[in-house]
Design a protein around this nucleic acid. Structure first.
Lengths: 154, 154
DNA sequence: TTTCCTTCGGCACACCAATACGCATCTTCC
DNA sequence: GGAAGATGCGTATTGGTGTGCCGAAGGAAA
């Protein structure tokens, strides 16, 4: 699917305000409400718009710690990786996880309330992950940037 | 602000579907539409709900690379840090950035279309960051988990 | 226990937005 | 030049939003 200027404007607007009323969105991008809605539905249909979510304020919910964990596995077999990944996907505490090239096999980020909470997560979630050889945690002192909007150039 | 069971249900639902109609949200959590709307507005008011956004599909937009970059600065003075952080915040390509305890001073994640695009970002954005002593990039092969929903226990 | 007060949910209504549909317009390709 | 497809506009209808008001539940004080 090819995106024209209007599609990008729609996407940019929705990336900034996912709950904007269609009428307002239409005005902002310079389309009629019906035309705008049709484009928006099309973007949802093909999956370019994945979903709409509310982003909560971590700090106000008492989550003051972000921790990165680099993980090396005991092996690289398909089965070892799949087991590990399934377990990661099941844990609601793990916010991000990537399979990596380079030193570590995986890097993941999780958010905790405080050191005691991190210990809980470490014990109940991280230590339960299968096939882990080595784990190295790095603590974030402060988030500088957290962006969900993908730049659409032009 | 204290959150009861209903607030948490509202937040969980909105974290999964930020564009749900208030009437449907109300039915889902077992409230009348008006009561539900009032709670939702209150959660927005105090900032527990930060904002609503559309999440786009990176892959469908041609962004196939996620890169983590660990950065050490030339110094730790307030000014060095602030200059660096301002520059990071200005760059729309940097998706996340954290001030870290431990080896590196900062860790950041960015998304690129391909190696050529990464080179562009490296040249036009990363290399322009002030006060950088050392940079170490790690490439992600595949995202395993990407979550925006904060767990609200119970 | 009674009274007052506060908090919170439900109800109803007025208004406004979403959505489907028909028609007009523009483009593209034979 | 004409037909087909895509896309925009205006409108009518459906349905959701948001507000004012009432009443119920819970707590505090006499």
């Amino acid at each position: 699917m090819k995106l024209d200027r209007l599609d990008k404007k729609i996407l940019d607007t929705l990336q900034a305000d996912g709950r904007i009323a269609n009428a307002d969105l239409a005005e902002k991008v310079g389309l009629s409400a019906s035309a705008c809605l049709r484009r928006m539905r099309a973007l949802e249909e093909v999956g370019i718009i994945d979903k709409y979510v509310a982003l909560l304020n971590q700090k106000k919910l008492g989550r003051h710690m972000d921790v990165f964990v680099e993980i090396s596995l005991t092996g690289q077999s398909k089965e070892t990786l799949e087991n590990f990944e399934r377990a990661v996907a099941r844990s609601g505490e793990i916010m991000e996880c990537f399979l990596m090239a380079g030193d570590a096999d995986y890097i993941l980020r999780l958010s905790a309330r405080d050191p005691i909470d991190f210990e809980r997560i470490h014990r109940d979630h991280l230590a339960q992950l299968p096939g882990v050889l080595r784990m190295k945690s790095s603590f974030a002192i402060r988030p500088i940037v957290r962006r969900t909007a993908i730049p659409l150039e032009d």
